[in-house]
Every structure is written in structure tokens, then in C-alpha cells.
Amino acid sequence: MIYAIGANERFLHNDILDQMFQLRARVFKDRLNWDVTVMNGREVDSFDDCDALYLTSINEQTGKLQGSLRLLPTTGPNMLRDVFGALLSGGEVVQSPLIWESSRFCIDPDLAAQPGRLNSVTTELFCAVVEVGLFAGLETVVSVYDARMVRIFRRANWPAEPIGVPVQFGEVLTHAGFFEITPEARHRLGVAGGHPFPVVIGLRASSPTRVLAATQSSISA
């Protein structure tokens, strides 16, 4: 299951977020050797202060974090604009209220899938991106990713529509691409990863139906 944790709920999920910052250090520094800053075993950057919305996959039995990613609006500070601008050297700007950026996608390395197979935590997180995107009325998610992800997106039936030109950053050939946010995309991802039901906890609970009725009665009471 996926918790969507915004800055308004960080205090409720300190433990999950702390696991996430540690997982990011393990994955991006230790395994992929990206140019990221790790302090006290945790990878945190300036975008974590920008009201990021985290999608975190939690193992229901153990309560352990299995994978996570970070969403930021493209109208505000974001990595494509502020760090990977070189990918859009044609002067294009991705800046729209209907496009959010996904970054820092990572999966617990101990849960790696068999070669050639999709990790169900991966598809669960992709499903969550689409669910949250639909909830927020988005059309598209943009992301910066490396070659190893291209195959995964294709296998998950959620191919990227490439934008700009790939650029070498350090050791990594980096791409930028758009991802479709539609009920159809959610359906295809669900089929590819075996997630027929909503994966994100909490979006439903705050859906208008139930709670509004409660407000209504208590205000008029």
C-alpha cells in the first residue's frame, strides 16, 4: 500500500520518511554513485523543503518501507528546471499547473525483481503516481531518468514520451520524458503489475462524499 505524505502530514509519518531518506542514500549514493549529498546516512536535498509530496510503498505485514518517490509541481522549484535544465536546451520550459515532476524514485535493493521481471513495488508506485495525478486533475507527469529505467517503463506499459535530448551527467546518460496520467494508463499499469484496486491510502478517505456529509450535519446542528 502507498501513503501519499505531504508537508502537512510529515509529523504523522516521521518514521516512514526517515526510512525513505536512508533508502535514498543507499540507492543513489551507495549503489548508483550519483552526485548527491548524504548526511548521517540520509540523502536530503533542497527540493525536500519545497512542500514535496512523497509516495511511499509500505509492506503491510512488516510496516517497512519498500520504495518511494517525490512529486513537485512544475510551476515551482523543480529538478528539471533547476538542475537538469540542460536536457531542454532548445529553450523549452516545462511549467504547467497540470504537470508535476517525479524524482528520487527508488526501490529497496533487497527487493530487486528477477532479471527480466517487473518488481511489484515499482508498478505499485507507478499506479500511485497516476492515482494521485488523477486526484489532482493532472494531465502529465514529467521525470528525469536514466537508461536503466527505459526498459522498466516499457515493461510496465507506461512508456515515456521523450522530450529534449539525453545528456551525460557524470556517469549517467540522462533523459527527460512525459508520462500519461489517465484512467487508461492506470488500468494498463494495474494489468502489468497486478494492482486492480486503488493503491494509495488516504485519497479516498478525504474524498468529498463521506466527510462533506459530516461537515454539513455538524454545521447545521
Binding site: G6, D51, L53, V211, A213, T215
Partner: peptide, 14 residues
């Protein structure tokens, strides 16, 4: 603090 749209109905009026 959040970036998600907010339906006022979600607030705890207890």
C-alpha cells in the same frame, strides 16, 4: 503545506 487540492469536507470538525 500540501500541494494536493483540498476539499473542505475533509477537515475534522470535532
Amino acid at each position: 503545506s500540501t500541494i494536493l487540492p483540498i476539499d473542505w469536507g475533509k477537515f475534522d470538525v470535532s
